[in-house]
Amino acid sequence: MEKTLFEKYGGFSTVSKIVMDLYDTLLDDDDVGPFFDDVDMPRLIDHQTKFVASLMGGPASFTDTHIQRAHHNLDIAPVHFDRLKEIIEGTLEKFEVEREDIETVLGAFESRRKLLLGD
């Protein structure tokens, strides 16, 4: 049986490192950083670790409704989504995730674009 990306890259141990590094970059970014002002970061990082794990085929899952509810009050524009996607890509590259696997994760993220932008 073929391993999921989650299993291939070390499970929650690696995913949590990826997410921590991702947020180090996100918080310093002029475009997307402000979205995280006044956010309970430990709680968010826990949720995002589970979300990234789910993008990689891990055990966590998020419904479309859950994703929409979590972002409904944010004014996320396509430029913000695209910038986040770039940061995710760079972070995965930094962790030496293979190009094909990065494309898989980015595709899973992209498939949720409408949930965050509402268009």
Rank of each mutant, 00 (worst) to 15 (best):
I67P: 12
D40M: 08
K17G: 03
S111K: 14
H47S: 12
F51T: 01
T4I: 08
N73L: 04
V19R: 06
F36A: 04
F81L: 04
A60Y: 00
I45L: 07
D29P: 03
Y23P: 00
L116K: 05
T25N: 11
V97I: 13
V79G: 14
E2H: 11
D82F: 11
A70P: 02
L26H: 03
F109W: 09
D31H: 09
D37W: 08
L44C: 01
L106T: 06
E98H: 04
G118D: 07
K3N: 01
K50P: 00
I87V: 14
L116R: 08
G10F: 04
I45F: 03
D101H: 15
V32I: 09
E89Y: 07
E86V: 09
L44Y: 08
G118C: 10
E103M: 12
T14M: 13
L115Y: 00
D82E: 03
G57V: 05
N73A: 06
D101K: 05
G11V: 00
T104A: 13
T25D: 11
K85V: 06
A108L: 13
S16I: 07
D75N: 13
E96T: 12
K50H: 04
D28P: 10
F12N: 04
R99Q: 15
F81E: 00
I18R: 13
R99G: 04
L117K: 01
L117C: 00
H66E: 15
R113L: 02
E96I: 05
I67R: 05
R112F: 06
L55W: 03
T4M: 01
D38N: 14
D64F: 02
I88Y: 05
D29R: 01
D46V: 14
M20S: 11
A53W: 06
E98T: 11
P42D: 08
T14I: 04
D38C: 00
E110N: 11
I102M: 07
K85Y: 05
T25E: 14
V79S: 15
M1W: 00
D30P: 10
V32D: 02
A108S: 10
E2K: 11
T104G: 03
R113W: 00
E100K: 10
G11H: 03
R99A: 13
A77E: 09
P59A: 10
V97A: 08
R69P: 07
R113M: 05
E100L: 10
M20P: 00
I76Q: 02
V19P: 14
F36L: 11
F51M: 02
M56L: 11
T104I: 06
F109A: 06
D119I: 11
L27I: 14
S16C: 04
K50A: 13
E86S: 07
F12R: 09
E93K: 15
H66W: 15
R69N: 13
D28C: 09
D101F: 05
L92C: 09
V105H: 07
H71M: 02
L5P: 00
G58S: 03
G90F: 01
T4D: 12
G118Y: 08
R43A: 00
S16R: 13
V79L: 10
D28N: 04
K3F: 04
R99W: 10
D119H: 12
L55F: 06
